[in-house]
């Protein structure tokens, strides 16, 4: 891959996904694109990119983008976050709402976060509706299948939880139907305008903001804000925060990564 190829990849990722492909990821990019080139019938990565630059095909473009996103995730990532959800938010929201608590796993990757949320809720006896979306079609297909290798299933899940909520299928583990039924999986771009009126009580959007270009971050945050009810909760990664002096989200003291949406009326007055 030439430096020019990499610069064009950076531009492609930034414009379509708002993703910041840093220069030190050049080797990793080359490594990840190898299988894409083979799958698409190209001799090598250079040939595939040459073709993409000369005659952009949407499906190939997205295949390339998906391969370069940072899809790493695991069960109950940032354990403290799940403890806040289980001990504080789910009991309070269940009592207050009288209906199912609506949670959005935004940037769900291969689904471990969404399954962790659903398990937490089911074990707490709380009714939830979980929507899980990701930009990567491959990741969402895996999430929907609910199938995980023994490496994946063991990362973050206790053996008891694994046995309770997953069944063994050959050398893999598949989420039980009652668990899968709690979650809707969809491919979606967080930069797109929300197309429906769905509003959520809680949004998990962790380890997405940190990988975004500064120009695209306001658009992501705006989309999250519009999908969250007033006083709704937004979980970011432990080390992530909304930009600048955002008055849309207030940090919660002592709960790293947790933000509460300011009521709309208050924001208009301010």
């Amino acid at each position: 891959m030439t430096p020019e190829d990499f610069e064009r990849l950076q531009a492609l990722l930034a414009s379509r996904a708002g993703y910041r492909l840093s220069r030190e990821r050049m080797q990793l990019a080359e490594h990840r694109l190898g299988p894409v080139a083979r799958r698409e019938g190209y001799h090598n990565v250079e040939a595939m990119l040459a073709s993409l630059w000369s005659r952009p095909v949407a499906s190939l473009g997205w295949g390339v983008i998906e391969a370069l996103l940072n899809g790493e995730t695991w069960f109950r990532r940032d354990r403290a976050t799940f403890e806040v959800l289980e001990r504080e938010l789910l009991p309070a929201l269940t009592a207050a709402r009288g209906g199912p608590v609506r949670i959005w796993s935004a940037g769900a990757g291969s689904g471990q976060e969404a399954y962790s949320l659903a398990i937490a809720a089911l074990e707490a006896g709380a009714r939830v509706e979980v929507l899980a979306t990701d930009l990567s079609r491959q990741a969402i297909e895996k999430a929907l299948s609910g199938l995980y290798s023994s490496f994946e299933i063991q990362r973050g899940l206790s053996a008891r939880t694994m046995l309770r909520w997953f069944e063994q299928v050959d050398d893999q583990w598949r989420a039980l139907p009652e668990l899968r039924a709690a979650i809707t999986f969809k491919r979606a771009n967080l930069l797109d305008e929300p197309r429906d009126e769905g509003r959520f009580d809680i949004i998990f959007c962790r380890h997405v903001l940190g990988d975004m270009t500064p120009e695209r971050r306001p658009r992501l945050l705006d989309g999250l804000e519009r999908r969250l009810v007033d006083d709704g909760c937004l979980f970011l990664g432990m080390d992530e925060r909304p930009d600048g002096d955002s008055i849309a989200f207030r940090p919660v003291a002592g709960r790293r990564g947790l933000y509460v949406k300011s009521p709309s009326a208050y924001r208009r007055a301010a």
């Binding site: 490496f151 063991q154 990362r155 973050g156």
Partner: peptide, 19 residues
């Protein structure tokens, strides 16, 4: 108290020890 399926790696062992 816990069960680790072989093969395992550092991430898995760390998460099981935290568990």
């Amino acid at each position: 108290d816990e069960y680790v399926m072989k093969p395992f790696d550092g991430d898995i062992l760390q998460s099981k020890l935290a568990e």
